[in-house]
Design a protein around this nucleic acid. Sequence first.
DNA 1: TTGGTAAGCGGAATCCAGTCCGCTTACAAT
DNA 2: ATTGTAAGCGGACTGGATTCCGCTTACCAA
Lengths: 207, 207
Amino acid sequence: MEELPLAELPTAQTERADAASNRQRILTAATALFDERGAENVSMQDVAKAACVGMGTMYRRFGDRVGLTQALLSERHRVFQDEMVRGLPPLGPGAPARERLHAFGRGYLAILDDHAPTLAAAGGHPLLAGPEEAYRMHLGILLRESGAELDVDYAIVTLMAVFDSRIHLHLRRERGWSLERIQDGWCALVDGWLGVPGTPPPAAADR
Amino acid sequence: MEELPLAELPTAQTERADAASNRQRILTAATALFDERGAENVSMQDVAKAACVGMGTMYRRFGDRVGLTQALLSERHRVFQDEMVRGLPPLGPGAPARERLHAFGRGYLAILDDHAPTLAAAGGHPLLAGPEEAYRMHLGILLRESGAELDVDYAIVTLMAVFDSRIHLHLRRERGWSLERIQDGWCALVDGWLGVPGTPPPAAADR
DNA sequence: TTGGTAAGCGGAATCCAGTCCGCTTACAAT
DNA sequence: ATTGTAAGCGGACTGGATTCCGCTTACCAA
């Protein structure tokens, strides 16, 4: 349960029956509370109470608030990661690296757009540690495949840094930007890293 | 005291003498504690106690932990902003936009490198709100001056997103990257946004 | 069926940021 | 000097995340 590249499968067979039911109860309660009142108005206590479970149980299961939040989103990410690896182009294999990168960013940002408030309430960061490893790897492969001459690992950092939920929320709410603007911006960022090949001006060409 | 572009000057004449002395006492105590034990092991209580001041006083003066931290760093930023606006090239006026951007990033990252632990302990983000406005503005001017065709405001977001203290700390500690590598990466990011003019490969040329 | 035992459980305790509010005092105007 | 008052003060209080720990129980092996 440590180094799985895709979304974790913590529900191994070796989990006791009561533990499994508690896990499910917690996830259900959390989902309900989060979209009823908004994640920022729900405490871990609230979730525990609604799930009829002690605090110890929640924390044993999910580690911390970030962990719980990630578990809530893991199904969506599992599906996305599957499309990314096995799905149709341009997201899946078959399209040129640049297009796959664009499709990836648009897709990730669409998911983020739905969950940014929940993620921001938890305080996690997509770049740091764990379950986003699959995305870093995917970006690395595509960047290398593109043949551009660059520090791939640093490029990945910049590409994922803007997936920070607080930033996203800030752009969408305080500044009122559209999701499309952010997605276009991300594609332009990719084009900046890849360099402009035959295509005319990259930013302009894409919008 | 609201819309000053440079570092704020809160010590206006209109501050009561006892208030001024408390402010100083708090700043001194905080500095001492932070570099004695590391900011992550110092609570606001600790600072208040060491400064012989109540919690109310600290929060009246600095708003929150982020505010206190920023106040601690403000002198350094004031100097840097001054060099940026009035100093010598390449940081100051006179050099081409690309070079000024490179110099800006290297300088900012050097400061960040010294203070990332303190900033991370406070939890603030350089992109969001307030005192970093001056930097956003500076980047905007230079990006526009460069004549590149791009969404300037989005480019600013990406350029400042990687100034996140948690990211910086992660790269330096968990990944063991050198400051130079991060600085070079940032310059390459700038070059990506500006496009490569006559210069050979930008990343390679810069290292 | 019966234990033994590791996994799981609950919820009180801890730690900390940030808020509240009634008391105190610097200082400016008289 | 006196005094009115807004600015300033301290520290108890609140709310929330996370940890601790002694009790309980599912379930495997005998």
